[in-house]
Design a protein around this nucleic acid. Structure first.
Lengths: 161, 161
DNA sequence: TTATCGAGTTCCAAAAAAGAACCTACAAAA
DNA sequence: TTTTGTAGGTTCTTTTTTGGAACTCGATAA
């Protein structure tokens, strides 16, 4: 499967990964959430090559995750800001960071703290059921075909292969 | 920055991406959560080349996200199962799927439903603060340096560049 | 005996990324 | 007026990663 085919799949994960599923894109978005907006700042902070940065920013703008707006004319300078669609990726990043905090930190502990402005505490994300509010773990969820299901194969055979 | 340098960064996102930050790994894990365990099943369902599949499975085992265990001897056959560390990635996948359901579905709607066994309803993940239980959006969080912070640069300059 | 199966490995061509140099439009300084 | 600087790229070459197909190995089935 090629990159271009990924967003054709009847799978929300595949479609999401067609936008953010590479090494650089989520790091760029991390910096967006930290307030970075300019090409040169991304480049310096990430150590990314200009070529790849240009490509990823363009893709993110095409997918309406970022928008480009001029912050000065003559000479025109653009900056990149998160759209609402982009802001919705915050939970994704928070979840990835949370896993890293739990499983990939060294003895020094988590590099950054997330402060919930509402209650003022350092928090970690907790996932709950939208319907009953109970905390969710992998074992609490069962998957069923939804309206957009299109595959001929069953979701999973009983052979657990 | 190279792949190998990614896990050296003082950033939980970068460290997490050093494990799951490529096109295939999260799709493999999606199938793991659907119950797939065998090399040949991954290959057939994903349309991944054997070479890349071998490589990704090996990496996931090295990182203790999957474990390999024989399901028969003579000839030896191995299967791949999620470890506890791997099961913890369920929230990551659920969050990615949720974003895709909201922003990337066509008119047919979400391909799969997630049923919460506890309450029996089709749910979507809701993120709440671990401390006060309130729902979280991007605008509710402020980032501060934590114990593992090591960068000389400030988290963000006031210029919002 | 030949075929099949699961789980790979090997080999080669194609695509993507890294790294560095170059370009452009404008502005300010010398 | 020439030089220097800057933001935001583009071009070029080399290295790394993929894709695709064929081959291996041990064992069982026809």
């Amino acid at each position: 499967m090629r990159w271009e085919e990924l967003d054709q799949q009847p799978c929300s994960l595949a479609r999401t990964l067609s936008v953010v599923g590479d090494r650089w894109t989520l790091l760029i978005l991390r910096d967006c959430f930290l307030g970075v907006r300019r090409f040169e700042t991304f480049e310096r902070r990430l150590g990314i090559t200009r070529h790849v940065l240009t490509d990823r920013l363009k893709k993110l703008v095409e997918h309406d995750v970022l928008c480009k707006s001029p912050y000065q004319e003559r000479p025109r300078r653009e900056e990149y800001r998160l759209t609402e669609k982009g802001l919705d990726l915050h939970t994704v990043i928070l979840t990835l960071v949370n896993w890293g905090d739990k499983h990939m930190t060294d003895e020094r502990g988590a590099p950054v703290k997330h402060i919930h402005k509402g209650c003022g505490h350092a928090m970690h994300p907790q996932m709950v059921c939208s319907e009953c509010g109970e905390p969710i773990t992998a074992r609490d969820i069962r998957v069923e075909a939804g309206d957009g299901w299109q595959d001929t194969a069953p979701l999973l055979g009983s052979d657990r292969s």
